[in-house]
Design a protein around this nucleic acid. Structure first.
Lengths: 206, 206
DNA sequence: GTCTATATACCGATAGAC
DNA sequence: GTCTATCGGTATATAGAC
């Protein structure tokens, strides 16, 4: 008894190097590489270097462990994006910085990938972190754009939340195009196409 | 002997209602719903209503059947898109028609989905139809945009192939956002955001 | 051509020793 | 807490009867 697992995936960040931590990290990696359906508990255990029993001691099962891993990944992504959006600069600059930042294009988006996994999307608990992450992202980009409009940097004719959705979609769709081509070029093309359209809506500093 | 399977998935369209045809259609449906990893031969057979032996008579195995199904789906999608792009109207009209056409947004793109499947992307034969389909799509949209520029409908400042990639990416990324939210609204927002940006680049008829 | 039977491996989870 | 042993079920493919 005395299972650590009462709150299961709900637990905060476990100590670094701990068994839980290694399990979560292994799961994050495997979900990114193979998706939910393609990730087996066995593969997670092997990568983490622990036995079967450890996993079921700390987590209720595959989906519980996946939930912890997905939450962690979503939180990390949000933090990284927020750093860019809260930086100084015009709205265009910050959106451009987000679109142009270093990405492992051919690996795709670890959160976006989950939306293609039936078992994830159908489970409300597993889908929630995706919904929150992308909901936050679109909202945050819209805020940045609206701020640009208030500062007179950006055309008032634009609908910030629509353009924000376009920005987020171009990134996610760029990954799809790049993976189909096995080449990051279509991702870059899509980003630059959108940035050119957006640049045309900026007004030179008065 | 006398296997129909010599050319395997390479065969043209089999007779309607035939066993091969039912197998291909079932596979198309299941790949769309569950992806490659999530689709088992058993599930295909059950949906097609045929026995194990029939499948291995006509196809070399799961990947061979998947190849036939993916090719078929890609060909169908290309034909449907071409119908829109070759219709009369301005470049903006035709791109808008493509972006705004009826879609089963929450089901996602049957071809785009395959790019998230490790086993598909890593197999050159299975990836080829995806690459060809999206390569064609980006090229075709770029053609339409370039035509608009020649006709003086669209700003010459735009890079047609970059904007074409943005158009294709917004669709694919729109699916991702919609599935995360379990709501088609983000897809529609992304499309309208891009269309507004593009509309600003059109020149009123002289 | 189509079917059932069989084979080997892996899936996700549990039991219970240490 | 961690381990190994084990379970019933499925994945993918082959064998061989009809």
């Amino acid at each position: 008894m005395s299972s650590t697992r009462d709150s299961a995936a709900a637990a905060g960040t476990p100590p670094p190097g701990s068994t839980q931590e290694r399990l979560v990290i292994s799961t994050q990696e495997l979900l990114w590489e193979r998706g939910y359906v393609g990730t087996s508990p066995k593969a997670i255990l092997q990568r983490a270097g622990v036995g079967q029993g450890s996993m079921y001691h700390h987590f209720a099962g595959k989906s519980d462990l996946a939930l912890a891993a997905i939450r962690r990944t979503a939180d990390d992504m949000r933090a990284a994006a927020e750093e860019i959006f809260s930086a100084p600069g015009t709205a265009y600059d910050r959106v451009a910085a987000y679109l142009l930042r270093e990405r492992q294009v051919l690996r795709g988006c670890p959160i976006g990938r989950m939306t293609q996994d039936r078992d994830v999307v159908q489970d409300p608990e597993l889908r929630a972190p995706l919904d929150e992450m992308f909901g936050w992202l679109r909202h945050r980009i819209a805020e940045v754009l609206a701020e640009g409009q208030r500062h007179g940097e950006l055309s008032d004719a634009l609908d910030p939340s629509a353009v924000a959705a376009s920005v987020a979609a171009v990134v996610q769709g760029g990954y799809v195009l790049a993976r189909a081509a096995e080449d990051p070029a279509p991702f870059d093309a899509a980003v630059h196409g959108l940035l050119a359209l957006l640049a045309a809506q900026t007004t030179p500093a008065p």
